[in-house]
């Protein structure tokens, strides 16, 4: 009885949360380098259309995934060029990037509206998949779900255990100091931005290839903004972002199930819940001024001028 209801709910939660995991972890790397890119929504939707279009043309969703990452990366390059080399304001450029991305994706996706594709296949692990309940949950996901876990591990390791991770954090904390000891602030930030773009693109690809295998305009429907909120929610730690994404996805799905079971709570309140919980946690984190200051990169959102 419990397995019959809980396992399907958990399966839905995984697909709802995975796009957020990619986008949020990508943005953590960007912000850790001291750059605030508010264009996550735009990069995500462009990733979604890129992935979908290439899957339609090639018939291969794996090539589509790569195309999604690449589309997000290309868009983020525009942001990187404008903010790092022309010193444009990061907030304004990021917002413009979202508006641009939404429009561009609609334009590019015009001929793909209404087309159908083979969605990203679920993997089938012999023997393990047959374990009742647990099998489908842990061993029968599409590869991007495993990739999202792997990326959380990889990014944590990179940021905390490698020299380049240290350099990236140094650039984000104090770009002048990092510059004076010989790090190329601009180049490190550019790579961080491109990585964030590719990750947002992967999140978008997951939307159009696995979550709802179709293309319609504006299909990311604000998930990029939620990913941005998750970064602060997670106080810039990849694993917290991972669990934050699952918390958000989980509450979204559980409230749908609660409605189906006739739980007598206004559905508007239930729809609000995920956002409400995010805000409450944000408030709890931000209440402690010291903690928010030590976790937020000190140079977040500041342009770096190498020559003074």
């Amino acid at each position: 009885m419990i397995i019959e209801f809980v396992i399907p709910a958990l399966l839905t939660i995984i697909t709802a949360s995975t796009p957020l995991v990619f986008a949020a972890i990508g943005e953590i790397v960007v912000e850790k380098s001291g750059v605030l890119n508010l264009g996550v929504e735009g990069m995500m939707i462009v990733g979604a259309v890129g992935a979908f279009a290439v899957t339609v043309k090639t018939g291969n969703p794996y090539i589509g995934v790569i195309a999604g990452a690449f589309s997000g990366l290309l868009l983020s390059f525009i942001f990187g060029f404008l903010t790092l080399y022309l010193y444009s304001n990061q907030v304004a450029t990021g917002l413009a990037l979202t508006i641009f991305g939404v429009g561009l994706s609609a334009l590019l996706g015009h001929e793909f509206v209404g087309q159908t594709i083979n969605s990203l296949p679920k993997l089938n692990t012999p023997f393990f998949s047959d374990i009742r309940g647990l099998g489908p949950l842990v061993f029968e996901q599409d590869f991007m779900v495993y990739l999202s876990v792997f990326m959380a591990i990889l990014v944590t390791w990179f940021l905390m255990r490698t020299r380049w991770g240290l350099a990236l954090r140094a650039v984000g904390e104090n770009h002048d100091a990092a510059h004076s000891i010989g790090f190329s602030v601009t180049l490190i930030r550019l790579f961080a931005i491109l990585f964030g773009g590719a990750m947002a693109g992967l999140g978008g690809a997951y939307l159009s290839l696995a979550h709802t295998p179709l293309w319609v305009e504006n299909m990311s429907a604000g998930r990029g903004w939620i990913a941005l909120a998750l970064v602060v929610f997670a106080s810039w730690r990849p694993w917290r972002a991972f669990f934050g994404a699952y918390l958000f996805g989980g509450i979204t799905i559980i409230q749908l199930h609660a409605q189906g079971f006739g739980v007598d709570v206004p559905s508007q309140v239930l729809s609000m819940l995920p956002y409400l919980v995010t805000i409450i946690v944000l408030v709890m984190i931000s209440r402690d001024d010291f903690r928010i200051r030590i976790s937020a990169p000190a140079c977040l959102g500041k342009s770096f001028h190498p020559h003074g």
């Binding site: 839905t12 697909t15 709802a16 796009p19 939307l207 979550h211 709802t212 179709l214 319609v216 504006n218 299909m219 429907a221 604000g222 998930r223 979204t252 799905i253 749908l256």
Partner: peptide, 8 residues
């Protein structure tokens, strides 16, 4: 209109 949420 939110394909993801409608699907969920």
């Amino acid at each position: 209109f939110d394909p993801g949420k409608e699907a969920d």
